[in-house]
Simulated assay, not measured.
Amino acid sequence: MKFSERMGFVEVDNVIQFKSMSQRLKNDIFNFWRDEIERLYLNNPYSNHNETEINEFLWTHYFHETKPIGYDYIDTSQITAYYKIMKFYEVYDFLEFLMQTLLNNPVDTKKINQVLELNHSGFRFIGNQLEPISSETDIKNLESGLNLSIDDGHLQKAINELGKRENINLNTIMKESIDAVETATHQIAAELFDGQPKDTMGRSIAILKDNGFIENHPAYLKAFSNLYGYSSDGGIRHPKNRDYKVDQAEATFMLEICSAFISMLSLKKSDYKTKDLNK
């Protein structure tokens, strides 16, 4: 992370881009495909294709345009002018076309996925087609959990870590996510019932369940308790001799499911207070 970002002098975009595209992402996608076309075709001694042929291929097969009157060939500036005014979904359309035609190889798939991940795009290539890495429901749960402010800032810390462009600590995301749930359950159990500050999360959940606050199927609560154990036993929350190696998919999943659980707790808290008022 840059000095200006660490010190807070410039705003850092920590949000997964699902229905938008930052200028930096748009620029990085442009630089990716131009660099790869140069590598594969223009600077490749074994390639018989030149820049004019590449540009005219894109001009006719993607943009479906004919040559403007007075032009003998299409140059890169004309393609660039089209790219600059593309909406974010048009950029993804264009990128898919490139990955299915000129850049249809595993090396470029890996490279572009790294570009998308670095810029927090909500999409990745599976084969040569873009697929969402997170559903709209997951995005809403994350935003909802963050805005409820019953987790003592742990969700924000997890999101800040996920939002880093470099040196992301995935264990921190896991730890802060589950700590958010632990804090939220403590707060509700203490506010509404006889919960104590030093209670474990299992004890807090038991208090909520015994008082009819949580009436979910036991298997659901057991599944979440197992997630809590998974985050602890793997050395994530309480480091031990063996550290479980977390990948970004697991860390993101933990953040999303913990956000959803906090949203559910808050909704039930509102319902519970409403029932008390109506008694």
Rank of each mutant, 00 (worst) to 15 (best):
G8C: 12
D35N: 15
E256D: 05
L102C: 04
P239E: 03
H49N: 05
S266N: 10
T76C: 02
K209C: 01
Q129K: 14
I16Y: 04
V181A: 04
N14G: 03
T60M: 09
S134Q: 14
T185H: 00
N44K: 08
F125I: 11
I37T: 13
I262C: 03
P132F: 05
N167H: 11
K175D: 03
C258L: 03
G235M: 03
Y92H: 02
M174E: 00
Y220C: 07
K110M: 08
V12C: 07
K240V: 08
S77A: 12
L98M: 14
Q114C: 09
Y83P: 00
T76Q: 09
I159T: 00
F224W: 01
V115N: 09
N31H: 10
K222D: 11
L267N: 13
D179K: 02
M21T: 09
H49I: 15
E191C: 07
A223H: 07
N55F: 12
S134H: 01
I37G: 01
N169C: 02
P45Y: 08
M1Y: 03
I159F: 07
D35P: 02
I133Q: 01
Y46A: 15
Q17L: 10
I79E: 02
L118W: 05
D28M: 04
T109W: 06
E215D: 02
S4P: 02
L116Q: 02
Q17S: 11
A260L: 00
I150K: 06
I178E: 00
F32M: 12
E11Y: 12
Y83E: 08
E182F: 04
N147A: 15
Q17C: 12
H120P: 04
K140W: 00
E56N: 13
W59K: 04
F253L: 14
T172H: 12
H120T: 09
E38H: 14
G195A: 02
L155W: 01
I69S: 15
W59M: 01
E166G: 08
F97L: 01
K84D: 05
V115K: 08
F253Q: 13
G229T: 06
